[in-house]
């Protein structure tokens, strides 16, 4: 597996050199394109990250987690994981620190921890991907895919816990 990336570089650069492409200037042109691209994303990222931070420190996340934990228990998700499930769509680093807490508290091989790991591994930071991918595109028709993805995230949370019980 670890050989994939170096081999890709070797293959591409060898073929480029064989076809008499100026590898250095092509690479620099690509890097410049990359810079322009990332720069255009920064304002959106800043706004979304601010929102996520506020969501966490204002206590809304905790309150929602407390309110949702009975419903989650009904769906088969351990109540202790309500906060993780809630933060995961917003913040990768936030949910990672929560996951670490859970592993520390319950031990790596407990049911709760295995659930937490599966939830973490099988879902994305939806709002982050949303901000990144939709930055600078037409505002029309964004709501439907977001709703679909959020639904599937809920499904993946429940399924994770179910599968952890069986497997």
């Amino acid at each position: 597996m670890s050989l994939i990336i170096p081999s890709v570089f070797i293959i591409v650069i060898t073929i480029a050199a064989a076809r008499k492409v100026n590898v250095f200037s092509s690479f620099c042109a690509g890097a410049e394109e990359g810079l322009k691209f990332t720069l255009s994303l920064v304002p959106v990222l800043a706004a979304v990250f601010m929102m996520c931070k506020l969501f966490e420190i204002s206590g809304i996340a905790d309150a929602l987690a407390a309110a949702l934990s009975p419903a989650m228990r009904a769906l088969g998700v351990p109540g202790e994981l309500a906060k993780l499930a809630l933060i995961k769509p917003f913040s990768g680093s936030g949910s990672l620190s929560l996951l670490t807490e859970v592993l520390e508290k319950y031990g790596a091989d407990s049911y709760v921890s295995r659930c937490a790991c599966t939830i973490y591994a099988s879902s994305e930071t939806v709002f982050y991907v949303f901000a990144l991918y939709f930055a600078g595109t037409d505002k029309k028709g964004r709501a439907l895919p977001l709703a679909v993805v959020l639904l599937s995230t809920i499904l993946s949370t429940c399924l994770s816990c179910m599968l952890c019980r069986v497997l």
Binding site: V8, I13, V23, S26, C28, G30, A31, E33
Partner: peptide, 11 residues
């Protein structure tokens, strides 16, 4: 990756 991709594109 964009650097590499540009090299790949140009060749």
């Amino acid at each position: 990756w964009m650097g590499l991709s540009r090299v790949a594109a140009d060749s």
